[in-house]
Write a protein that binds this DNA or RNA. Structure first.
Length: 952
RNA sequence: GCCCGAGUGGCGGAACGGCAGACGCGACGGACUCAAAAUCCGUUGUCCGCAAGGGCGUGUGGGUUCGAGUCCCACCUCGGGCACCA
């Protein structure tokens, strides 16, 4: 045993007693994990509040590193899950070593559907199942050696946590969006405006309105409001289903029962009020450009016009992005759900229309708008008047028009829109041109230029001179661009009273109710008028009631008439409640929906900051310290947020929305929750199927010459997510047992860039273990445990190698390029090993920085080696090495010489050789001269110290 | 279908528009060993060639450039999202 008082036990089987094996790694890792926990090494001090330690905050810069909130799955972790956690841990440890006060923690998004489904099947309370899953995940992650502050590991299912989720909901409920001010304000200020007559209620003077009317007026402005929205009602299961639980055929995934679209009164969040800010503020975020683009596309801001077509049932308003094509509108299409359909439909068409509407209701939006589908639709047997031409046009309904977008009705311009064109062709509706397409357009389609649209193979979309687009009041002749024509048309629409320019968004308000048990109850009760009232702060949290039976009451599978009943509605004594809301004790009915899983993940990062605060969801000073803006124009927010691209739109958009509401109401100083975003890739794995198409255990498949067999029978290979169904799961626990946590961490980081997806390959892990064994051997003798360190000076070449590595590794780590940082460390260690093989010992001046640089990646082994090198303090706060610039410089440089862009030779020249001298030396080179073959270069391209290219 | 990505040796990957294949796995050869494992040293894109050297090579087809894995256009394949999985 070594002289360091270590209790490390020797290896079993034949290996030298102190070889760095999984056995030894396990002991080293347990030792340091215990020590970090005992010393509370990774607890981050707060400047104020319950976790305040202002003296430890000191003058250090701060850094808040965040992983996306995990759901504690019952299946436990597989090796794909920790990828991002290891990445953030390496980064956090690196930054800590460069002097930052780093906050890094991980909590659990523990409400959600799987636990509830588990409860329905097993009868075990979701809380019990959830807590055991969290415990499993905590154990697996602790073994990984992550430098998390354990005090901050909150769960959304903690009453202490969801009390504040409910509180934030009430903040949203008690607010409205003031368009003039461009921000949310307390609802009391809106009521004040109504009382003083400064704002029109839309229903007459405030003083003349009854309580229910006043509530209706105010509710029409709230950021959280009730609206009718469709749900998937499955009477056969007695429950409402999530979209993913419904098959493409409109039946339940479980049991294959019919599913009916029904509307229910549900909580909705007015996220559309923030659409412009959610788009505009993207410009100030340090996010990957593709993610910003996805958010912009999702919000889908488009500028166009609202236009009214007169009809027998009154004006039908349409939204169009192309008001310039109004003269070509030869028919109208309404969404099947459009409210005017019933009034417009002729008696002859009534039956067909009803049948069509029923069919459309069973389809998902994505299906309805699928452009490859054959266009379907039914005529209403009615007409409307095109305001530009004054002509009557037929009115149809079709499922490709959605009620949720624009006004739920379109003017169809078949010559200028491909969907309308397809529809017109399908049903023989007229197509008239509004623009002359360029000749090239016809050429590409192999037809001669013509304005006879019956010859056209499709709609024309783009700029082009206008034709047939004039009436007595307006003409588009002379406009060359769409923009110019839109402007002229919008001006006329407004003047003539037919419409006005308008902006619309694809983004819809956010449906916030779930008809489930395992979620946050709403802090809302209804009075005898059915008016929603906030549960006062003092009565929070509204706790989830206990359920005896998680199984919903199944009904006749075809009974589409009975109303859906959410689980909480069955707990009668909980639903009916007596409360004092300021006007004495009264009876109320509780809201029986629960919040969606998004609710907790919309603000959890704020609770990490101040997890034990009982007076506020976060102390304002603590929030300002960790997330406040760093300067004018800075949005503030988390310094680094790492997670998968699958959250590119929904989670990130919802969380931004809530954060902005909290900002508007003055509860946080940051305008955005996540200032910098980084998307990690996925670790996927090969999976194999036998001749019958059954998956076989991937671990038992053998490969030879590019084909695979299992138990001797040939199998086919596919690529996919790790999971039970593909039988290709590899767990961290297996890696800990076979290699140890440090090797596992190193392998995950070395596989490729953090943002790339890659296949898992257990076979490759051994490379990183061998690397660590070589480093370890350069520190201690694996037979005796003696140090192999010398205090003499390192040779100049090795020292230069060291400083090149330091510069490169620091740079790579700061940019999250851990794979190339590891490659540089391996190169350095290989050079060191060559020296040790020749000289018999490792120079301390090389070994110590190498151990320090390894520390963020393999913290246990690094601390162990650091201790053996005689250093007392743990590496967590020890400064990262700094490269000596003098050691990076070189006198000469090798410059490739190209002839006609192909490398033909290389010349070694002094750094800073002037261009003409470089060319002269290049031409003097034998091989270059041979390729020039006596010709003089026509052109020379010189990049100083980098390259010469001779063009002949 | 719509939106967003990614395609480089046998495999994972490296490469500010400037030497394609760093580093690791695997494979092959050598040293050590009675032998094997482990370890150490070396070779390894591909084709032609004894060699020196040369040809070809970053999914496919075009383009921009003195020069393209990198930029642009089209296509093919794979992955992610599409609002009640989160």
């Amino acid at each position: 045993m070594s002289a360091h008082g270590s209790s490390l036990q020797g290896n079993e089987s034949g290996a030298p007693p102190l070889r760095y094996t999984a056995h030894l790694a396990r002991q080293i890792e347990a030792k340091w994990q215990d020590q970090w926990e005992r010393d509370r090494t990774f607890e981050a001090p707060n400047p104020a509040g319950p976790l305040a330690e202002p003296e430890k905050v000191g003058g250090r810069p701060k850094l808040f590193v965040l992983d996306m909130f995990p759901y504690p799955s019952g299946a436990g972790l597989h090796v794909g899950h920790p990828l991002g956690y290891i990445g953030t841990d390496v980064f956090a440890r690196f930054k800590r070593m460069t002097g930052f006060n780093v906050l890094h923690a991980l909590g659990y998004d523990s409400f959600g559907l799987p636990a509830e489904q588990h409860a329905i099947v097993t009868g075990i309370h979701p809380r019990i199942n959830t807590e055991s899953n969290v415990a499993t995940m905590r154990r697996q992650l602790r073994r990984l050696g992550l430098g998390h502050d354990a005090r901050r590991s909150v769960s959304t299912t903690d009453e202490d946590f969801y009390r504040w989720t409910q509180w934030i909901f009430l903040q949203v409920f008690e607010s409205w969006y003031d368009r003039e001010a461009g921000r949310a304000r307390p609802i009391a200020e809106l009521i004040g405006q109504f009382e003083r007559g400064e704002r029109d209620t839309g229903r007459g003077p405030w003083g003349a309105l009854g309580p229910a009317e006043r509530a209706a007026v105010v509710d029409g402005h709230r950021l959280a409001y009730l609206a009718d929205a469709p749900v998937n009602w499955c009477p056969g299961l007695g429950t409402i289903l999530a979209n993913e639980e419904v098959t493409a055929e409109g039946r339940s995934d479980i049991g294959n029962f019919p599913v009916f679209k029904r509307t229910m009164r549900q909580w909705t969040m007015r996220i559309t009020a923030y659409a412009d800010r959610l788009i505009d503020d993207l410009d100030r975020l340090d996010w990957p450009e593709p993610i910003k683009l996805m958010q912009r596309n999702w919000i889908g801001r488009s500028e166009g016009a609202r236009v009214r077509f007169a009809s027998a049932a009154g004006p039908i308003e349409v939204f169009t992005t192309r008001p310039d094509t109004l003269f070509g509108a030869t028919f109208m299409v309404l969404s099947p759900e459009h409210p005017l359909v019933d009034e417009l439909v002729s008696d002859g068409q009534r039956a067909d229309v009803a049948a069509y509407r029923a069919r459309a209701a069973s389809l998902a939006d994505a299906e309805r708008t699928d452009a490859t589908r054959e266009k379907t639709g039914v005529s209403l047997g009615a007409t409307a008047v095109n305001p530009a031409t004054g002509r009557e046009v037929p009115v149809w309904i079709a499922d490709y028009v959605l009620m949720g977008y624009g006004t739920g009705a379109i003017m169809a311009v078949p010559s200028g829109d491909q969907r309308d064109f397809d529809f017109a062709r399908e049903f023989g509706l007229p197509v008239v041109p509004t623009q002359r397409p360029p000749d090239a357009w016809f050429e590409a389609r192999g037809i001669p230029p013509t304005l006879d649209c019956s010859q056209w193979p499709g709609a024309y979309v783009g700029d082009g001179p206008y034709v047939g687009s004039s009436n007595a009041e307006v003409t588009l002749e002379g406009c060359d661009t769409v923009d110019a024509a839109v402007a002229r048309m919008n001006a006329w629409l407004e003047r003539a009273g037919h419409g006005r320019s308008a902006v619309t968004y694809k983004l819809r308000d956010w449906l916030f109710s779930r008809q489930r048990y395992w979620g946050e109850p709403f802090p809302i009760v209804y009075d005898e008028h059915g008016v929603a009232r906030a549960v006062p702060d003092a009565l929070l949290p509204v706790r989830l009631p206990e359920l005896d039976d998680f199984k919903p009451q199944a009904l006749d599978p075809d009974d589409e008439r009975t109303d859906p009943i959410p689980p909480l509605a069955r707990v009668g004594q909980w639903v009916d409640v007596e409360m004092d809301l300021g006007d004495g004790p009264r009876r109320y009915r509780r809201e029986v929906n629960v919040m969606p899983q998004w609710a907790g993940s919309c603000w959890y990062e704020l609770r990490y900051l101040d997890p034990t605060n009982r007076n506020a969801f976060v102390d304002p000073e603590v929030e300002r310290y960790w997330m406040g803006p760093t300067g004018p124009g800075h949005t503030g927010g988390v310094d680094l947020y790492v997670g998968g691209v699958e959250h590119a739109v929904l989670h990130l958009l919802y969380a931004r929305f809530w954060h902005k509401v909290l900002f508007d109401l003055g509860h946080v100083s940051s305008e955005e929750p996540f200032h910098r975003l980084f998307n990690q890739g996925y670790i996927q794995a090969w999976a194999y199927r036998d001749a019958r198409g059954q998956t076989v255990p991937a671990a038992e498949v053998a490969e030879s010459d590019g084909s695979w067999t299992w138990n001797g029978q040939p199998v086919t290979r596919e690529y996919g997510k790790m999971g039970k169904s593909l039988k290709n799961v590899v767990t961290p626990d297996e890696m800990y047992d076979e290699y140890g946590a440090d090797t596992f961490r190193l392998y995950e980081m070395s596989m490729g860039p953090l943002d790339a997806s890659r296949p898992w390959n257990t076979r490759d892990v051994v490379g990183m273990q061998r690397f660590l064994q070589r480093v370890w051997r350069n520190v201690v003798d694996e037979d005796t445990g003696e140090l192999r360190v010398s205090n003499g000076a390192a040779p100049d070449a090795l020292r230069r190698e060291l400083h090149r590595a330091i510069a490169g590794v620091a740079d790579d780590m700061a940019s999250l390029r851990f794979n190339t940082a590891i490659a540089k460390l391996i190169e350095l260690n290989n050079a060191l090993t060559a020296h040790v093989n020749a000289a018999g010992s490792s120079p301390r001046e090389v070994l110590e920085p190498l151990v320090q640089m390894l520390s963020p990646l393999c913290p246990h082994l690094a601390d162990e080696m650091w201790e053996r090198l005689g250093r007392r303090e743990v590496l967590a706060f020890h400064p990262f090495p700094v490269a000596d610039p003098a050691m990076l410089a070189s006198d000469t440089v090798e410059v490739p010489v190209q002839v006609n862009g192909k490398v033909r030779s290389r010349i070694v020249v002094p750094v800073g050789t002037p261009d003409d001298e470089l060319v002269r030396l290049a031409m003097a080179d034998e091989k270059v001269a041979a390729h020039l073959d006596g010709r003089a270069p026509r052109n020379t391209v010189v990049v100083p110290d980098r390259l010469v290219n001779l063009v002949v």
